[in-house]
Nucleic acid binder design. Structure first.
Lengths: 356, 356
DNA sequence: CTGAAAGCGCTAACAG
DNA sequence: CTGTTAGCGCTTTCAG
């Protein structure tokens, strides 16, 4: 075997096959206009030397680098891990790499990431953007010559493609479920309301309340969509609003925090308090009581995002943005309970309902 | 404002500043040998035009691309999400990008990823490698001219740097804890034993058993380190080995699966069965009963991996691999219980122990 | 201190 | 069908 000192380049293959580099390039690219014999010889040599193209060089001339940037707030959130996995699988399938960026819901950090990705000529960007983009930022993104897919946003007015779950519908279903269960004092513990994802869920919640025909008291709070913040909001809620019998959480993390706070306060779920989450992350089915929640197809959403990205990037001229809205479903588990039942059978009921 | 048709390149800045591109390059790189006035003018122009270097071009000439590849088995495992976050933060801090690869513990897929990363001239690779590398693969990796840090492996014999938790010690502590609690029939439900991580944990387990001076019966099983497989192993265990009173799980996912299976069999944890996990992922403290487990500093390990990678890559010639071993600690929660207590107070004890 | 020139590895017209 | 010629945008000798 030849000692592969330095990398094998096109030139090496060209010399070895006795042709010009451009011919090698064509042959390897599978373009027509290369004699069969020549092609076979080139391919043979390339294989023998285990030739692998330098993607930086190719990217430089082609103008992009077979790379997709994925911006999420925090990969430790199982929701994003699932989305990222879907995206990565789709990217791998299309021979693209996925670069992971954690923005922490921080606008400045996010823009820094984006610029750095643009400097690398990424093929496209999938971003779970924070808040509303400023006019300047939006323009910067529009003109950066890179395909962008917004995740978890339905801003159809924007010139970008979007992939999201039906957050409004999810918020609606969640509230409706609790209302049907007889709850009339419901709290909505949400993520940051300036984020469209959470704003939509909240609107769904409000619409369900307004259209229920029932007289319902609500208390609305919002904070970061994390376990600690869900915990903090719930502690405050339990102390200040004892009349509340049910919580619609902006996501499962908040719901988990809520359950934790409830446990500490000696408030039993679902006997004293019903809780419904959003996302259906894996753990929601593992905790006790199992969390009733709104399921959204996270893996598929990640997949869809890169598919849309690559589709439009291939046709190139298809400037018309695509919007994909995924349906959500109610997953009934053990954390919600009819209000009536509790009053009728103050204690004994728990045995029956807890049984898993 | 000038319409930035096409990207701003060095050439543009050079023209605008009335100097040669090479001078601009030097000025921007902060090299000495540029007149202060010239430098200031160049910097001014560059700033005015928001010049940003094309990293592909730079990478092409420099030979690497300010990118780090991170190979994990599955980012959906919270353990890896945490490691990835630590790695990403450190990479961002050092102006590098992190590309995420999910190998699914599949050797072929892993090698495909590695090759694709090498084609992009990554600065280095952090890999949570599957099984033992074949001689050919190891050689390929050694000669690829790229820094490699192995995660979760202590193979000091290998020419690569490593970062890992003290898996042997963890396995030892886990078994020891159960033994001290009086258990004499202990099962080890482990991940794939051909993976050094799990092999080390198992050896720790065995060493604790052997050095305990007690007569202890063990049953060893291994499978994939996932919730479903933990569930399956436990079902089998419960059916075939009713004498077992405690389980040491290879990781928290397996432990979670075990708890699920136990619940279905009507086996109470920790009353009928003690379970101890490994990793201390976030959920382990959220489930019921809270999981006693071995903590390893995941975030810090991710961070350390890229720090080591970049350190050696900067000095370049430092061929001596670095090995970093992180200590582990026992986190006592509610899933383990003394064997004696159970016998003494068959039922009442549970109330006291469950209280959180 | 600065410009000219060469080249990283590859692709893409343009001639033959 | 294939070789020649030009770059992509940047860094890096090498002169001057």
């Amino acid at each position: 075997m030849q000692p592969p000192l330095g990398r094998i380049t096109l030139k090496k293959i060209a010399e070895e096959a006795g042709v010009d580099v451009s011919t090698v390039s064509r042959a390897l690219a599978g373009l027509n206009g290369v004699h069969k014999d020549t092609r076979d010889r080139v391919l043979e040599v390339a294989r023998k030397f285990r030739y692998r193209p330098n993607l930086l060089a190719r990217g430089l001339v082609k103008g992009h680098s077979q790379t997709i940037g994925l911006l999420v707030s925090d990969i430790r959130n199982p929701y994003f891990a699932e989305v990222a996995r879907g995206a990565e699988d789709a990217a791998f399938h299309a021979a693209h790499d996925l670069v992971l960026c954690n923005s922490d819901l921080n606008q400045t950090k996010q823009m820094r990431y984006i610029r750095s990705l643009l400097d690398k000529n990424v093929t496209g960007l999938i971003m779970h953007s924070v808040g509303t983009l400023s006019a300047a930022e939006r323009e910067e993104l529009e003109n950066c010559g890179v395909r962008i897919v917004l995740l978890d946003r339905q801003a159809k007015s924007q010139p970008f493609s979007t992939v999201s779950a039906d957050n409004h519908q999810g918020g609606f279903i969640a509230a409706q479920h609790l209302i049907e269960l007889g709850h009339r004092n419901i709290a909505h513990l949400n993520g940051p309301r300036h984020h469209t994802t959470f704003a939509d869920r909240m609107r769904g919640f409000v619409d369900a309340v307004d259209s229920s025909g029932e007289k319902i008291s609500t208390v609305m709070m919002d904070s970061d969509p994390t376990i600690p913040d869900g915990y903090a909001m719930t502690k405050k809620l339990l102390a200040e609003k004892p009349e509340v019998t049910a919580i619609v959480a902006g996501n499962d993390a908040i719901a988990l925090g809520a359950m934790r706070a409830a446990a500490e306060f000696g408030v039993s779920i679902p006997d004293d308090l019903s809780v419904i989450g959003f996302d259906n992350i894996e753990v929601s089915d593992l905790i006790h009581p199992a969390l009733t929640t709104i399921h959204q197809p996270k893996y598929e959403m990640g997949q869809a995002a890169v598919e849309i990205l690559l589709k439009v990037s291939r046709t190139e001229m298809t400037r018309v943005p695509e919007h994909r809205l995924f349906g959500v479903t109610l997953i009934e588990r053990k954390s919600c309970k009819p209000l009536e039942v509790r009053k009728a059978r103050p204690v004994a009921a728990s045995e029956e309902v807890y049984t898993s």
